[in-house]
Amino acid sequence: MVFLEFEKPLEQLYEQLEKIKQVGEQSDIDVTPMVKELEKRIRKTRKEIYSNLSGWQKVQLSRHPERPYTLFYVSHIFKNFIELHGDRLCGDDKAIVGGLANLDGQTVVIVGHQKGVNTKMRQYRNFGMANPEGYRKALRLMKMAERFGFPVFSFIDTPGAYPGIEAEERGQAEAIARNMFEMAQLKVPIVVTVIGEGASGGAIGIGLGDRVYMLENTWYSVISPESCSSILWRSWDYKEQAAEALKLTAEDMFRFGLIDGIIKEPLGGAHTAPEEMAKTLKRHLKQTLQELQQIPVDELVQQRIMKYRRMGEFEELAPVSEKEN
């Protein structure tokens, strides 16, 4: 098990538990009552820690090395997944995966960021940082979904779109902009879930949808707390403050009306019980899809556009008489 820094009390309890269990195995002493007592304390401590997580702690959880990624959910929620590769223009991006699958009898299209599960794979997946090919592959698959009337499920988990020379040469900005432009008008339901990190343009490039959900311990904002700290505080040391200032948690985002719902994670985070997490997520996705499929598709598109049209708060001063220069 990997413990985060704020989970230190838990780590100690788990260590004690291990020792006691060892003692129990090596001698005749009945350790059951002590084990039970410790397990109770672990549950209690976990509840205490997790009932009041700061923004930065949630950011850390969203990046937990054992956290389930898109392909885990794909294999536990959908059946007959066939991965489809390439943007038909330039190449195949490993940081965004996509394909066809079956959700309890319905054909659907899936797109999502994919991070690697070990050092080698993390490199292979470019740490979930997509190049333009990734966004264009996602768009190609979504347009195919539209052609055949398949709903789209998008999973967001990225520290950002890749900032590289080739990415700029091939139009990272254009790829992201084009995706939003096209997703706004896509004539099939789009359900988006932030399952880990939702960093900026790299996230919203596959993130425009009829319903956008965030798992409980994820974040979604215009910039990562680290980069925000380095720009506004001119130092990397203010990431905690930046994480608070950005108000990037699922709760904040829901309160602001920028997402449509929060999906609860198992106590301790999605990685502590990934199967349970997948089950909960599946229930939500199915229910959402059922709701969306009740709405005639033209109306759905109109509702989607109006949802984004309304986003943002500002003040309106008393209208000045229209100035003519």
Binding site: A177, Q185, I204, V222, I223, A245, L258, I305, M311, G312
Partner: peptide
């Protein structure tokens, strides 16, 4: 780029303007 001091609100303006431009294109 996007204004950090309005965080996700700024981010969503990308989607908002792109969506509105798609309406105008239609």
């Amino acid at each position: 780029g996007a204004r950090m001091m309005e965080a996700a609100f700024s981010l969503m303006q990308m989607a908002k303007t792109a969506a509105m431009l798609s309406e105008m294109a239609k």
